[in-house]
Structure formats: C-alpha cells, structure tokens
Simulated scan of single mutants.
Amino acid sequence: MSSTTILSVEGVGKTFGGFRALNDVTVKIGEKSIHALIGPNGAGKSTLINVISGRLTPTCGRVIFRGESIGGRPAHETARRGVARSFQITSIFGSASVFENVQIALLAQNGLCTRMFSESRSLLRDEAFSFLESVKLVEQANRVAGELAAGDRKRLEFAIALAGNPRVMLLDEPTAGMSPDERTIIANIIQSINQERGVAVFFTEHDIDMVFSIANRVTVLHQGSCIADDTPVAVRMDRRVQEVYLGEDENADLY
C-alpha cells in the first residue's frame, strides 16, 4: 500500500437527534490502497461512507481529499472531485443496454448531455468498452441492463462509477446477497480496478474472508468509535476486535 494518504477522515462525529452514530472517527486511506471498514451491525459503517461521499454532513470533524476539505459538500460535487460511490453516481437505466448505461455516464462526465439521446452510439465507444472490460461485462454489452443478475448489476455500477474517473471508490457492502461464486468475482474485480487503474477502494463488508483476502488495511468500528486500524494480520490478532465479533455472533470467526 502506498504511504501517501489520498483521503483522510479526521475526528469525524455524526449525531442524529440524541443518538451519536459516529464518535471522533479518524481514518487515513492510502493512495491506490484497498482499505476495508468492518464492524458489527449498527457500528456506523454506512454512516461513515455517507459522510465521506457527501450524502450526510458531519456534525464535527473534517473529511480531506487530496489536501482539500470536502466534508459537507453535495454528493455530486464530491463525485466530480474524484470520490465516487458506485450506486450514487447514477441509477441504472433498466431499459437501456449495459453498453448504453456506461456510455450515458461518459457523455454526462464529458459535458455531452445534449447529445445523450441523439444518434450517438459511436460516441466514446472505446472508452465505454474499456470500462466494461475492467468489470468483465463486455460479453453482456448489448444485454438489457434490467435483466442482469444482482452480481452483474453490481459490476455495471462499478463501470458507471469508473466513467467518472475517480481516484477513490466507496463501496458499501458490495457483495451483499450474493452467492460465494459471485462474491469471488466481485473481489477479483475490486482488485483489478485497484491494480490496473490505480483507484483506491474503501469498502464495508460482512464477508470477513473477503476482507482479509484483498484488503491492505482494515479499520474496525464498534458503536460509532474506531477500535482498531491496522494491517489485516494485526487486526486479526486484536483481542478487542475478537471480543466484538464473538460477542455479536458465537459462530463468528476471524481466522
């Protein structure tokens, strides 16, 4: 993992009424890294992703991207600056083809929205296929997007996010509801996006095996607070982390 920090969360807190969802959370995401965020249900993982992406405004603290404060900025502005959340970039057009979904995202990114519904199939064709290749969807390019299986829809969302040329991708439970085979495919694609395109990935995930197989660094939240932030090996050995997971589920296992 790169020692250069591309995005940092500094002392972030978030309250909803009298409920404190995040408490003084600090996380540093390395450039070109794969950084996992784990914790029991209700730990604050999705809230933190929402704060970073601009969907929620932090109650206190800062979110810094490439030296600039982005905390509290609108989600679309945060995405344009290079911090993408796959399913927040755009909705999938179910009646359009897989190729057209990525092409539309590219047209929007390049300020060509006025040509979006014209005879524009040739526009940015190579770029669209390049992103489909990254997520292994080229063979389904002409398929109607609404007919895709859950795992394939997730891959299409990744391709749409990549069309925004992000430097960081935020993924909230990218393998939720998937079969073991589908989870393996998604894990491989995340690694490919990271290694081939140099995009840092910050993701939440309940599949511990996946987390420890692909992450360079792991942050653990519990009741809104960070209780561990270290290499996967160190987090596995952390007694507090083991207690949190074993306390949630007697069958939980970090090994």
Rank of each mutant, 00 (worst) to 15 (best):
T5W: 03
T5C: 11
T5D: 10
T5F: 03
I6D: 15
L7W: 14
V9M: 05
T15F: 00
F16W: 11
G17Y: 12
F19W: 05
D24I: 09
V25Y: 05
V25L: 11
V27G: 02
K28M: 13
G30W: 14
E31I: 11
S33V: 02
S33T: 08
S33C: 03
I34N: 04
L37I: 13
G39C: 12
G42I: 08
G42Q: 12
S46R: 13
I52V: 10
S53V: 15
G54F: 07
R55C: 03
P58W: 00
P58R: 00
G61Y: 03
F65M: 04
S69D: 15
R73H: 06
R73K: 11
P74M: 07
A75F: 09
V83P: 02
A84W: 01
A84L: 05
R85C: 10
S86K: 00
F87P: 00
Q88T: 07
I92K: 03
F93K: 00
G94K: 09
S95G: 12
S95A: 15
A96T: 06
F99R: 05
E100V: 09
N101G: 08
A105Y: 01
A105L: 06
L106S: 01
L107C: 08
Q109A: 05
Q109N: 07
N110L: 02
G111C: 07
L112S: 05
S118T: 12
S120Q: 04
E127C: 00
A128F: 01
L132V: 03
E133W: 01
S134I: 15
K136A: 15
L137H: 03
N142E: 14
R143I: 02
R143W: 04
R143T: 03
V144C: 08
A149Q: 14
A149F: 12
G151Q: 05
R155Y: 02
R155N: 04
E157F: 02
F158L: 14
F158I: 09
I160Q: 02
I160L: 05
A161M: 10
R167I: 01
M169F: 02
L171A: 13
P174R: 06
G177D: 09
P180N: 14
E182N: 05
R183C: 15
I185A: 10
N188H: 07
I189D: 15
N194S: 13
Q195N: 07
A200S: 15
F202C: 12
H206L: 14
H206Q: 14
H206A: 09
D207Y: 13
D207S: 07
D207Q: 05
I208W: 14
S213I: 00
S213N: 14
I214M: 11
N216Y: 14
R217H: 09
R217A: 08
T219E: 04
T219D: 05
L221Y: 04
H222T: 10
S225W: 01
I227V: 13
D229V: 04
D230N: 06
T231Q: 08
V233T: 12
V233D: 15
A234W: 02
A234C: 03
M237T: 06
R239S: 11
R240N: 11
Q242Y: 00
V244P: 13
Y245N: 01
Y245W: 08
E248M: 06
E248D: 07
E250D: 10
